[in-house]
Nucleic acid binder design. Structure first.
Lengths: 226, 226
DNA sequence: AGAAAAGGATGACATTTATCATATTAATGT
DNA sequence: ACATTAATATGATAAATGTCATCCTTTTCT
């Protein structure tokens, strides 16, 4: 069993407020899982009863629309926590979490984490600030979806992906999404997304190589995204 | 100066966790304002440095899109608080608040409310739960904007307005929005919104009388909204 | 009251986006 | 390795939505 106090990713989340003793305690109650690409961590409507700490990998948070399509609400990466909102609201999770690549996650039962919520003020403030930040992002995203064209949203999303996940050695985005998933992020039909990617490629803004996408002209993409 | 401990609307917000002494203290530091319809309470980017408690009236929270249109993120009514997210994040507000009708609001400086945040656990939990609920609503709204047609969103919004604000004695929605504002809620061009309202009227789903809207067939609207 | 401005409604048309069909390419299972 | 399936790509077309122009109605101002 790996030890929380030696785990680097805790520094990136609200857990950084916990002291050494608290982290040692945490190590005893957590469960580690390996999640394969495509597997579900939890599903919309489930009672999760705890939080997941992402040690490695990226997952998507999706919500099923009545039309049968999955809307991607957020991508979550190494160092972030899942299930905080649900834990505080004492409600089932409202989103599904599905791995986009192989993941390492640790599950901490609600009973074990809620104690720090009362005792460790800094920790609860961190959680609150994270949720506030999510809310702000959500507001911004809403304006995009409501007011921007699909083309603008695609450009915006590509820039967001590069900014958030960086690029790998070959220059391509460090997160691989299927065309369908990318469509699920920008809220459009898969074919429309593919078509616009082709357009961007013809305009020399990006390069496509299977799932790999390289941004060639970020400043022009930036201009399109507004 | 009116007294918080005698104010009924506190029961509807996170403030219900405060005890009598705390409320009496609050009365001394709050400032009451009358806001006329159309006036701005605060603007996107401002440092608000406190929260507003809405004693009476309704306001819209909007965010300006790069295309120049105002997207309405949320409507807020009597009993609710404004500026909580900004206060916790210690950031400028990300939304503007504009009165949709004459309002009574009380402003409580951050310095006076933050104390309860540490001392009164129930109060801070209430605030958190409110923000969590906003986040959940925001996620739902996002899926609507991304995946539903304008017609579906209009039907959904009309039902939401009736559910949230009720109807007045003549059966019309108890909140009056201009066509432009309604468009700003559903994320569409004003003309498109007007056209669809006319369609709904021709189908006998609603009645229009100036700004007044009466829902005549909620179950059919419900069916359209999915 | 009357003028001016704002808001609402509607037609004509352009543009964007979705849908359906089908081809091509890549991934997967046995 | 080959068949099967899934993912990507593209064309043709329909449907949804936005834009511009114009007219009508209501509100506001003096």
């Amino acid at each position: 069993m790996s030890k929380c106090e030696q785990c680097i990713v805790r520094e990136f989340s609200s857990l950084k407020a916990l002291n050494k003793d608290e982290l040692i305690q945490l190590s005893d109650c957590k469960t580690s899982y390996t999640i394969k690409k495509g597997e579900t961590i939890f599903e919309e409507g489930e009672n999760v009863n705890g939080i997941y700490c992402i040690k490695d990998g990226i997952c998507k948070l999706t919500k099923l629309s009545p039309n049968g399509k999955d809307q991607i609400i957020k991508l979550v990466k190494k160092g972030e926590l899942l299930g905080q909102r649900s834990m505080i609201s004492e409600e089932p999770v409202n989103l599904s979490a599905v791995a986009l690549e192989d993941m390492q996650v640790c599950f901490i039962p609600k009973s074990d984490i809620m104690g720090y919520f009362d005792k460790n003020n800094q920790f609860s403030m961190n959680v609150m600030r994270t949720i506030c930040s999510d809310l702000k992002d959500s507001d911004d995203h809403m304006v995009s979806l409501a007011q921007k064209t699909v083309k603008e949203r695609l450009a915006e999303t590509l820039l967001y992906l590069e900014e958030t996940f960086g690029k790998s050695s070959d220059g391509s985005l460090n997160v691989q999404l299927s065309r369908e998933e990318l469509s699920g992020m920008i809220g459009t039909a898969t074919e429309s997304c593919i078509r616009l990617l082709s357009d961007f490629k013809k305009l020399g803004l990006i390069e496509l190589n299977g799932k790999k996408i390289v941004l060639k002209d970020s400043s022009k993409l930036k201009r399109i995204s507004e």
